[in-house]
Amino acid sequence: MLFKTKLIPFAIALAFAGSANAQEVIKIGHVAPVSGASSHLGKDNENGAKMAVEDLNAKGFKINGKPVKFVLVLEDDAADPKQGTAVAQKLVDAKVNGVIGHLNSGTTVPASKIYFDAGIPQISPAATTPQYTKQRFNTAFRVVANDNKLGGTLGAYAVQKLAAKKIAVIDDRTAYGQGVAEEFVKGAKKSLPGVQIVGKEFTNANATDFNAILTTIKAKNPDLIFFGGMDSVAGPMLRQMKALGIKAKFMGGDGACTEMLPKLASDSIGDDLVTCAEAGGVTPDQQKNLDDFQARYQKKYNSPVLLYAPYVYDAVMTMAAAMAEAKSAEPAKYLPFLAKIKYQGVTGPIAFDANGDIKDGSLTLFTYKGGKKTKMEVVK
């Protein structure tokens, strides 16, 4: 008994010594749809977050001179607003230091209120609806251009470069799909007041049969069809357009502008048939950084970057840089530094305006040739 009582104080002393030397753990929440129709895009985002955290830990990242350990807390919102708010609350309850996500506008907006109420900084790497930052939550940021720029630029391009005069519009009724379609129409009308919007149809984010709406559109003989939605819907839509003999050009926003689209569309994505845009882009002087990232990603995951993994990577790194500048990972302390951050990422320089939108956001226009996504130009 005497032997045991002598060991107890020694064990306690060891425990205290260990805790004193332990690294601070910083929890970063990441949310994306890793189940459902957009799960391939959600996993792409998740992989980008994993790469960032692994890189931070590998280089012994320090805050206020002390090494810290980053841990990812991964959640799946299934692109569903209700699930999105549920996992947002789960992250708040887990006391994460910051959140990267969500991917879809429809989940990002309702979740942002929960993070704001908890004072937790959130950087979306993909949500493009203007509504996200119009709420003026000081915790909400994004590293890509919004739909005002994305849809408006595509609308102008459709009439100026593709010479479209009769346009049909389809959206998937999500916050993202409707929003980008509306901005596309505004951009087209502004650039060519006489342009005819010959039809406005809608589907849903899980639809696979578009024969009814495409038959209606075919009768109106449009030059171009614009679709606001994701690649999982755009692919089958392109197949059915070909089956119906519709010769119109096809245009989509960033949700459809993926490396997976040719596979989803099968043999229905002829050269230069599709024009789309990513809500981000690098100028030639930045291209090597992005190329290097994409090569690392390919080697690590045996898969190409599908869409927003580089922006997720930069979002994590930007958040970490703000913590370093603030000398603290406490949300209330590093939030003001995040609002004023100037970070050089693999996707280019990152700084935010007063609303939390990225300053001087770029777009990259793409087409498809030989079944491959092919860059056309970067638009500032």
Rank of each mutant, 00 (worst) to 15 (best):
G371I: 14
T367S: 14
K340D: 13
T347L: 08
G371W: 06
G348P: 01
I350T: 05
Y368D: 00
G361Y: 00
D360R: 03
L365I: 12
D357Q: 14
F352V: 15
V346D: 00
A354G: 10
G348Y: 00
Q344E: 15
P349I: 01
G345D: 02
Y343G: 07
N355G: 12
K340V: 01
Q344Y: 11
G356C: 11
V346C: 04
I341S: 08
G371D: 08
G356A: 12
S362N: 14
T364N: 03
S362C: 08
I341T: 12
D353K: 07
G348T: 02
K340L: 02
Y368C: 00
K359P: 04
D360C: 02
Q344L: 12
T364Q: 12
P349W: 04
A351H: 05
I350V: 13
I350R: 04
G371S: 06
T367G: 02
K359C: 04
K342V: 04
F366N: 09
P349S: 03
Q344H: 10
A351C: 12
A354F: 15
I341M: 09
Q344V: 06
T364A: 05
V346S: 00
G370F: 07
L365A: 06
P349G: 02
K369A: 07
I341Q: 14
I358R: 08
Q344F: 08
G345L: 11
A354P: 11
Y368F: 11
D360A: 14
G356D: 13
K359R: 12
G361Q: 01
S362K: 11
L363I: 14
F366K: 01
Y343T: 11
A351K: 11
L365D: 05
Y343M: 10
V346I: 15
D360N: 14
Y368P: 00
I341K: 04
K369E: 12
T364K: 03
L365P: 02
K369V: 13
D357C: 08
K369I: 12
K359Q: 14
L365H: 07
F352Y: 14
I350E: 00
G361A: 05
G361E: 01
F352M: 12
L365V: 11
L365R: 02
D360V: 08
V346H: 01
I358Q: 08
V346T: 05
I350L: 12
F352C: 13
V346M: 02
T367V: 08
G361S: 05
I350D: 00
S362V: 01
I358V: 15
A354M: 09
K342R: 10
D357A: 13
S362W: 00
A354W: 11
G348K: 00
N355I: 02
Y343C: 06
G371F: 13
G370A: 13
G345V: 04
Y368S: 01
A351Q: 13
G348W: 00
D353N: 12
Y368H: 09
F366L: 07
K359D: 10
D360L: 07
G345F: 01
D357T: 09
G370M: 10
N355S: 15
N355M: 15
I341G: 10
T367Q: 08
F352D: 06
G345K: 01
L363E: 11
F352R: 13
G361L: 04
Y343E: 06
D353P: 02
K359F: 04
T367C: 06
L363A: 03
K369Y: 10
K340M: 09
K369S: 06
D357F: 06
G345S: 08
A354H: 09
G356R: 09
G361F: 02
